[in-house]
Design a protein around this nucleic acid. Structure first.
Lengths: 213, 213
DNA sequence: GATATTTCTGATTTCTAAGTCAGGAAATCC
DNA sequence: GGATTTCCTGACTTAGAAATCAGAAATATC
């Protein structure tokens, strides 16, 4: 989350701003933009509410700053995929799904934000589409299309296929509070996580293969 | 949505209350509780804001009333499943998934509400769990477990399996605004819907089968 | 270690949305 | 068709959260 673990952040204000961003990201992603009050963020970051306005113009700007944190996460995924462009489309897609799951566990904020804003539409979704999720998803859809063209995947519409796989992958993680309420299951438990991984990568992705191993 | 198409609703107030409930359900499910303003609901229902308070005590009560609309939908699903308790667990589960998809297209509010509140937790989730989604999901998990015990499904944790299938099934529908923003796809189009149906029922559910046909 | 700059805060203002209420209009009843 | 109840509304109050600001505290600079 912090931008650089090595350099002892130049100015004090930068560290405070980072704490605020982190707290904001956690809250915004769990609850959505309007459920979160500036006072909560301030409390979580251990500063006064006025300090939020010292570092960030207003609530919207703080939200954007928090989202930009997530871009680094996505960029890392890009980088890893980039290193494997000579593998088959199916292999790349499978790797992308594996990365997606790893990221979803490590940064559940991403999936929750997409779910929240992707359902609601509006200017925040437009911003996210432009800066965070649009390019990434279009790229994945291209990969899926290539895998279909190669005869490796069943010929479903590529965009739908990718989004559905992601929805399945992030669902359990996003719905952690519901899993607790309904089943008393703690999704953070290692066995839950391990079963989920197999479920998505083997069973679900396997269902799309034209010739399963 | 309206409670009874035959009887010309006894009192005028009942019809107005129903219009308000419908408008509230649509807005709450798309945007979540706090993103929706009472004024919006009033405008959508074509009444003044004060009228909302004449029919419903406050915003929370209106939300609950809107959610109770959904219970009728779930009850109908129950009824259909009830009529088939002598079929194999797998057959029942497949039927349940088919119903789930049909309902999700017809009443997208249900899936969106579950996603919104299931992510956030809190008192509204507790209410939903008790009145709407808990019993249903536990029942489906039992079905899945039975299908696993019968050797028809791969032995994944039943609760996770059910929730993941639902997440996959509702994902595309919930994310309609995102599909438009990122891919320009209108999920209401018949071909999108048809492909989705096959994707979930054949490919994804197929991936869980121990001996696919 | 005195000065200048940055960072932070309590108190206050502004804004927005929920909720109330008295009274007028419409429906219902006889 | 007049009386009575139900229904609805415009104008208002209240509550709460965002945003501002003057100045105090901390930090950096020399």
């Amino acid at each position: 989350m912090s931008q650089d673990l090595l350099s002892p952040p130049a100015r004090k204000g930068d560290r405070t701003a980072a704490r605020i961003r982190d707290a904001a990201l956690e809250l915004f992603s769990r609850l959505g933009f309007e459920r979160v009050m500036m006072g909560e963020i301030a409390a979580a970051a251990g500063v006064s509410q006025a300090t939020l306005h010292y570092h960030f113009q207003d609530k919207s700007q703080l939200w954007r700053a928090a989202m930009l944190q997530l871009r680094a996460v996505v960029a890392e995924e890009e980088r890893l995929l980039e290193a494997a462009t000579d593998a088959s489309a199916l292999t790349q897609l499978r790797m992308a799904m594996r990365l997606f799951l790893a990221i979803s566990w490590k940064h559940p904020a991403l999936g929750r934000i997409v779910a929240l804003e992707g359902m609601a539409g509006g200017e925040r979704l437009d911003w996210l589409d432009a800066h965070l999720i649009g390019p990434r998803n279009r790229r994945l859809a291209q990969l899926a299309q290539a895998a279909i063209d190669a005869g490796d995947l069943k010929p479903f519409p590529a965009a739908q296929l990718v989004i559905t796989l992601q929805a399945a992958g992030a669902g359990l993680i996003n719905l952690t509070p519901m899993m607790r309420a309904t089943f008393g299951i703690d999704t953070a438990a290692p066995d839950v996580r391990e079963a989920h991984e197999r479920m998505i990568l083997d069973a679900l992705l396997g269902g799309f293969l034209t010739h399963p191993n």
